[in-house]
Design a protein around this nucleic acid. Structure first.
Length: 430
RNA sequence: GCGGGCGUAGCUCAGUUGGUUAGAGCGCCAGAUUGUGAUUCUGGAAGUCGCCGGUUCGAUCCCGGUCGCCCGCCCCA
């Protein structure tokens, strides 16, 4: 018996989608761009179950994430649908840690689930392209990933300048606080990042209040909080340098990274922005997020370095960096830009018999063509030729094979070239 | 979770100050001398007016609830 909120089961659940053929063609095109880019960069595709043990997510993100996860208990097991791919990939890496030659480059295109309110560009069910490099501690990995991201933007048809990437380093912030509050309580760094991620939404004062809240998880002094807020306003490396020491490793890394990005030809599209910290607790170093320069959409993609995740989950330490690129926001952008392609069906040949007598011969022709590797639609039933040709035109087929009583008697098939509007005859057997 | 807007044919939308058979465009189907794609012309099918309840002689229209979608807030990848 149905109970609670229900629509009778005839509608897809809120925040989920059906993919009709035309939707699926677009989705396949988008995913094709993701895969093509990943392969161009030498990444290998992996996959993992959509259902994981709830503990995998609990250990990483803390209990507060639970109400955003699709989770359930079944036969005394606590399970959850993945909200992102990184924990599963970490699990896979840890399981073969001793057997793999690092660095490894892996990518995924997966469906993820988050139980939350919908807004533009966000649904409860969405697909995400994930690119990760494990085992490379240097910023060469970040540079390679960012280049892949821009290569994907190019492939999707977005003009340079339509999208950019804001980039920062959590390590920079961490260094500047090391002699202060982090010396005694290094564990507050993660909650601190989660708080300052909100600055664009709730403002500097509210963030300061949260950072200094004696009942909060961070409890900075007023001076420390002020320094953090001031630092977040930095929009260049020289600007940021004022908040750290000359021998700052984080700053050295950032300068090196920008040299590499320059070599890739993308540095101009990647402004430094000290206010970018990303909401996820596990990032440790460089963090970045892609945005539309028009400024109307939420982040298109986001990622960063998470060098301690493997340890946190119980493995040996392995440095790692990666990004996630969702299908929802990019779809909105492509829509706004009017560059969503409408890929045609991939039917190449259509085989048509005028009457029931010619059906076996038509089947023979279709079978022969299929063995040759052609995509063949065999006409079923008894539609009029006029309709068949009209449909063939619409789906973008190349040829129509016609078999009537006359053709059958002569052992031939008439082949009509749709583009040339010309016909020739071929023996039935090919 | 909160506030606002919307829900009429497959799609985009009109409309009814509450009154008989609810409309258009596009799409779909059929036909324009029986085996050939376009345009055109003609005709046709198609809607429990989101769902449930209330008010009323009578509700697609008014009221309440509910489900869904959109926008903002909140939250967050």
């Amino acid at each position: 018996m149905a109970k609670g909120k229900s629509s009778g089961g005839l509608q897809a659940p809120r925040g989920t989608r059906d993919f009709y053929p035309e939707d699926m063609r677009r989705r396949n095109w988008l995913f094709g761009q993701f895969r093509e880019t990943a392969h161009a960069f030498g990444f290998e595709e992996v996959d993992a179950p959509i259902v994981e043990h709830l503990d995998l997510f609990r250990r990483k993100a803390g209990e507060e994430i639970l109400d955003q996860l699709y989770h359930f208990e079944l036969h005394d097991r606590e399970l959850a649908l993945r909200a992102e791919m990184t924990p599963s990939i970490a699990r896979m890496v840890i399981a073969r840690q001793g057997a793999m030659r690092f660095p490894i480059r892996w990518f995924t295109v997966t469906q993820n689930w988050r139980y939350e309110r919908m807004t533009r560009g966000r649904r409860r069910e969405h697909y995400q392209w994930n690119m990760d490099i494990w085992g490379e501690p240097g910023v060469e990995a970040e540079a390679e990933l960012l280049s892949a991201m821009f290569t994907a933007f190019d492939g999707l048809g977005l003009a340079r300048g339509k999208v950019g990437v804001r980039l920062n380093s959590r390590a920079l912030l961490e260094e500047s606080l090391r002699r202060g509050v982090l010396a005694d309580r290094p564990e507050v760094f993660e909650p601190l990042c989660v708080v300052i991620d909100k600055i664009d939404k709730i403002g500097a004062q509210a963030v300061t209040d949260l950072l200094c809240d004696p009942n909060g998880g961070v409890k900075l002094s007023a001076g420390e909080a002020e320094r953090v807020i001031e630092m977040l306003s930095a929009r260049s490396l020289d600007d940021a340098a004022r908040f750290t020491s000359d021998d700052s490793g984080a700053l050295t890394d950032l300068r090196k990274l920008y040299d590499l990005l320059d070599a890739y030809g993308i540095a101009d599209h990647i402004p430094f922005d000290a206010s970018v910290v990303r909401g996820l607790a596990y990032y440790t170093g460089v963090v970045f997020e892609a945005f539309d320069t028009g400024g109307v959409l939420r982040a298109i993609a986001g990622g960063g370095r998470y060098d301690r995740l493997a340890e946190t989950l119980g493995g040996k330490p392995v440095p790692a960096v990666g990004f996630g690129f969702g299908d929802a926001v990019i779809a909105e952008l492509l829509q706004d830009e009017g560059i969503w392609p409408d890929p045609p069906r991939d039917v190449q040949d259509i085989v048509y018999a005028f009457g029931a007598e010619e059906k076996p011969a038509a089947i023979g022709v279709a079978t022969r063509l299929r063995r040759q590797g052609r995509n063949v639609e065999l006409c079923l039933g008894q539609s009029k030729l006029k309709r068949i040709l009209g449909d063939a035109d619409k789906v973008g087929a190349e040829r129509v094979f016609l078999i009537g009583s006359d053709e059958l008697a002569r052992g031939i098939v008439k082949v009509r070239d749709l583009a040339e509007k010309k016909e020739h005859e071929e023996p039935l057997g090919g």
